[in-house]
Amino acid sequence: MTTLQAALSGALVGGMFAVMAAGLSLTWGMLRVINLAHFGLILVGAYLTFELATSWGLDPILTIVVTVPLMFLVGAGLQWAFDRLGVEGFASLLVSFGLLIIVMQTVSNVWSADFQRMEGDVNPYATGSVSIGRFVFPAPTLIAFVFAVVIVVAADQVLRRTFAGRALRAFAEDRAVASAFGIDHRRLGMVLAGLSAASAAVAGMLFALGNAVTPSTPFEWIGIVFAVVILGGIGQVGGVLLAGVLVGTLSAVVSATWSPALSPLVLFSAIILALLFRPHGLLTPASRGAR
């Protein structure tokens, strides 16, 4: 019973990691930009949610009405600059690492280095939950999971069904050919990066819903979110959700049945095993993609 409950809540937590990872995975897979600044955007998203909810009295979830468009512009602008300057691959990793520490320091200057957390009266979700039978669904992670499903399904459909989506995938496969077919990769890239940043705004909101934030919080995300991205298969949004849920569930089950102390040990060992046998993502068999 405890184990089942833990697995359930772990899966929901995995939804939050999936939202964090989705944008990172897409820009990495489609644009070859490994954007560490994504974590900075999530951080800013969390702080903006905190600020808007606390000072303006907005419902924390509704803050995305403001933060999503804002982040979209930031993300698109960033991609514009990256594209102009020819920053991709490992160079993008380094440039965006520089941007990440700039963001973290700026956040610290604006909101102080201390923990910020929405108080109970502005954030009714923090301690709320939904019960079905004997199972409890904690509100913050349940909401995160719902968003994860919506975002992942929407992104997947857009990539599969729309012209822009197909164009993007073609571009990721072979740039030269895609350009020859008249695909305007600049504009598409900006839109994709914008959407990815918008998902960071959502991820930030979701994190702030259930947690206290400090400017150095992003370092706690990097390890696990990268694991989710790679387990899911770079550029595969569907895989991201699956990987997030698996990571969350595994970690929670180990935590509940053995000890929380063992959960990073088991989790990262499992990640290594998964990488060894499914290096291109859980959904891609090892033989595909092998060069």
Partner: peptide, 27 residues
Amino acid sequence: RLRSFRGEIFALLTLAVPFILAALARV
């Protein structure tokens, strides 16, 4: 040995190692 993992796969594999060692030392 198993395969020649390049790029991000190798990077993540090595990223996991310090996490595992840290957990081992704590346990």
